[in-house]
Nucleic acid binder design. Structure first.
Lengths: 141, 141
DNA sequence: ATAAATGCAAAACTTTTGCACCCGA
DNA sequence: TCGGGTGCAAAAGTTTTGCATTTAT
């Protein structure tokens, strides 16, 4: 695993938190990361998880996503990419499509602001939930 | 003011909350709305503000935006539109540019999911903060 | 009249932080 | 060694909720 520069020390906790994030595509919450890491370091504290997630975000090793108002999700894929969130099951998926740099140029031209990056989030119903909903409607009808 | 359908009763509190939201383009937080409404109904409770913001969101009268992890912002402009957030001053602006329906079609084709809508957020530095930063650099240099 | 909505306050929940101790370099 | 990092617990901040009261219809 590539270990980020900028830390003073690479502790067991920090290494494991980063590994957990890099081995999932599920855009987990801080609490989910905490539960996973606890399997291997049972007495790790939630504060440590938060501290490391914050540091990793500031270093650009991961990115923080905001869904709903209550909690953040984290993504170890720091390449620009788009997301799809299912309004039924709440899961968040990566969308494999070209990133539109042109959008940033247009926004900059329209506003006169300096645009560094953009986030594009799609919302709707995922395939699995579409099938389930379809079945329920069949049963009801 | 157009009053939304779906409520059982249109109370003073509810009407004023909606009016405050419709008379700003600043994408305020729940607490900001609370402070504004309190000018006219001093003993309104924060719980009432939250209850109404939630109801209005569910009814599609306003939309909830998520910036940072700590709190939500609300926007009474429910027409599809894009946002720009300044990383220096934290303010959020509407961006007057065409909404790309094509993006939704492409995401749907790529994923096989049903896409209802999308959110596009630009991040960077606003004009005012660009000028300030420029001046500081001049002074420092 | 009556049930939806409010005000109040406590609770729930996520995230941050102070501090003594520990441990990676 | 030694200061950065951790564990613990308390605190801070946002949002939700239970309940008695008020109020729009």
């Amino acid at each position: 695993m590539r270990e980020p520069r900028g830390f003073q020390r690479m502790t067991r906790q920090r290494r494991l938190i980063l590994e957990v994030l890099r081995n999932t595509t599920s855009h987990p919450t801080a609490d989910w990361v905490y539960e996973q890491v606890r399997r291997y370091i049972p007495n790790i504290s939630l504060g440590t998880v938060y501290r490391n997630l914050k540091l990793l975000t500031e270093m650009g090793e991961i990115q923080e996503l905001n869904y709903g108002s209550t909690h953040s999700r984290f993504d170890a894929n720091i390449q620009p990419h788009y997301h799809f969130t299912c309004k039924v099951c709440g899961r968040c998926f990566d969308v494999d499509m070209e990133v539109r740099a042109q959008l940033e140029r247009e926004a900059a031209a329209r506003t006169g602001f300096k645009v560094d990056y953009h986030r594009l989030e799609f919302y709707g119903t995922c395939e699995e939930c579409l099938r389930k909903t379809g079945r329920e409607e069949d049963a009801a009808g």
